[in-house]
C-alpha cells in the first residue's frame, strides 16, 4: 500500500501538524510501511467476532453528575503560554 504525497498532506492537516515539503516523501514512505504491517490483519477471519473496546470487557463506571472540582484557574494558568485577565490568549479568530 502506497500513501500519496497529497494524502500525507491531508492527514497532517487533519492532525494539525505543520510539515515541510521536504518531509513529505519520508512520511509517505514511513506511513506506507506501517500500513503494510497493519494490513496483515486481513489474514484473519473476524466475521462474527465482537469488537473488544476494554481489555477485560468491563463497563465504564458512572459517577453522580455533581461538581467535584474546585476552581484552580490561577494555578492552572501558571503553565499557559499567554493569559490576560484570567483568559487564555490566542490569535484573533473573528475579524
Amino acid at each position: 500500500m502506497m500513501i500519496a504525497p497529497s494524502e500525507v498532506k491531508k492527514i497532517a492537516r487533519l492532525a494539525r501538524l505543520a510539515i515541510d515539503e521536504a518531509e513529505v516523501a519520508r512520511y509517505a514512505q514511513d506511513l506506507s510501511s506501517i500500513l503494510d504491517l497493519v494490513e496483515r490483519m486481513n489474514q484473519a477471519d473476524t466475521q462474527g467476532v465482537e469488537p473488544m473496546a476494554h481489555p477485560l470487557d468491563m463497563a465504564q463506571r458512572l459517577r453522580p453528575d455533581v461538581v467535584t472540582e474546585i476552581n484552580q484557574r490561577e494555578l492552572f494558568q501558571l503553565n499557559a503560554p499567554a493569559v490576560e485577565d484570567g483568559l487564555f490568549l490566542v490569535p484573533k479568530v473573528i475579524e
Binding site: 500513501i3 500525507v8 492527514i11 497532517a12 487533519l14 492532525a15 501538524l17 512520511y27 514511513d30 506511513l31 506501517i34 500500513l35 497493519v38 490483519m41 486481513n42 484473519a44 473476524t46 467476532v49 465482537e50 469488537p51 473488544m52 473496546a53 481489555p55
Partner: peptide, 27 residues
C-alpha cells in the same frame, strides 16, 4: 508518525477497516 497513523485509521471511511478490525482481533 504515530499521530499521523492514528489520524489516518480513524479518518472518514477507514474506521471499520482499521479500528474495528483491530478490536475484533484484540478479542
Amino acid at each position: 508518525r504515530r499521530i499521523m497513523i492514528g489520524t489516518y485509521v480513524l479518518s472518514s471511511g477507514y474506521y471499520d477497516a482499521y479500528y474495528l478490525k483491530a478490536q475484533r482481533i484484540r478479542r
